[in-house]
Simulated assay, not measured.
Amino acid sequence: MLHIGCHLSVSQGFLHMGQEALSIGADTFQFFTRNPRGGSVRRLDIEDMEALNELLQSHHFAPVLAHAPYTLNGCSKTERTRQFAVEVMTEDLRRLEHLDNCRYNFHPGSHVGQGAKAGIGLIAEMLNQCMFQGQRTTVLLETMAGKGTEVGRNFEELAAVMDKVGMADRLGVCLDTCHVFDGGYDIVYRLDEVLEAFDRIIGLNRLKAVHINDSKNNMGSHKDRHEKIGEGYIGMEAFGRIINHPALRQLPFYLETPNDLEGYAREIQLLRRAYMEK
């Protein structure tokens, strides 16, 4: 079975997101933990989160994905920005303990001229501060397109961060198809080679989720501009191979395409039709 969902808004509550996902044929979803362009967070409603837990269990959902705000930058050259990142991630991880079967995804950040090595060290330092013993939520570093001074532009940089983090059993990777394609990885014609490189450098056992997005730009553009499935430079034929690949087909897929709820429903059905049951 293809485990697939899209990005939903938490503004109307956790249970509402689960019900909305079911209404479009999804069996998982992603949401921002707080304002993606700021830091404000909605009131903690444990009862609502527990109601979602019951719905997720009764409908056999795949893991849901909580996304950190874009403003989280643990490798900024500004100390206050780094401290903000620690505060946000620490609070997010504590709040997510109330959700069952949830993973937490974040963009590693931008080193802003300090160099990738310095950025890698700062990101690992943030993770070591925020993660805690007994934590249930797995934290995922997202693959990036390499725009500007982003850390995570290649598998080696993600591996370097992970090697410095103590709680390896609660750490993984979310592969974004648009990002890796824009970053120069040929997932259209050389998917096997890309996944072999991922396995050699990071380990496929650390790959826990896939952001499934087409790209508005050519491979290697380092632009990070998402497109609807089948309407960009990756194309529907390649997505058929991606969702059916033996190393990927059991993972949860999350759409982040420029769409409304009705458009997401169409994309989910399009991908379900391309998925070959085995």
Rank of each mutant, 00 (worst) to 15 (best):
A116L: 01
K117D: 15
K117Y: 11
G119V: 10
G119M: 06
G119F: 05
G119C: 06
I120Q: 05
L122H: 04
I123M: 04
A124F: 00
M126D: 06
N128L: 06
Q129H: 13
F132C: 06
F132R: 12
Q133G: 00
Q133S: 03
G134T: 11
G134C: 04
Q135P: 03
Q135E: 11
T138H: 14
V139Q: 08
L140S: 13
L141T: 10
L141V: 11
L141I: 08
L141M: 11
E142L: 07
E142K: 09
E142M: 09
T143V: 08
T143A: 10
T143K: 04
M144P: 11
M144Q: 14
K147Y: 09
K147W: 04
G148D: 12
T149W: 08
G152T: 13
G152I: 03
G152Q: 08
G152D: 08
R153F: 12
N154M: 08
E156L: 10
L158V: 14
L158Y: 04
A160Y: 00
A160E: 11
V161P: 03
M162Q: 09
D163P: 00
K164T: 08
V165D: 06
G166I: 05
M167F: 10
D169E: 14
D169M: 00
R170W: 00
R170T: 01
L171S: 07
L171P: 07
L171Y: 02
C174W: 09
C174N: 13
C174F: 08
C174V: 14
L175F: 08
D176E: 03
T177G: 10
H179G: 08
D182V: 14
D182W: 12
G183A: 12
I187H: 01
R190W: 00
L191Q: 13
D192E: 05
D192A: 07
L195H: 09
D199G: 05
I201M: 00
I201V: 14
I202M: 06
I202E: 02
G203C: 07
G203H: 06
L204W: 03
N205S: 15
R206F: 02
K208W: 14
I212P: 01
N213T: 13
N217C: 13
N217T: 12
M219H: 02
G220N: 03
S221Q: 02
H222N: 11
K223P: 11
K223V: 15
K223R: 15
D224Q: 06
R225M: 10
R225F: 14
R225V: 05
E227V: 07
K228N: 14
G232H: 07
Y233K: 15
Y233L: 13
I234K: 03
G235S: 04
E237W: 07
A238V: 03
F239S: 01
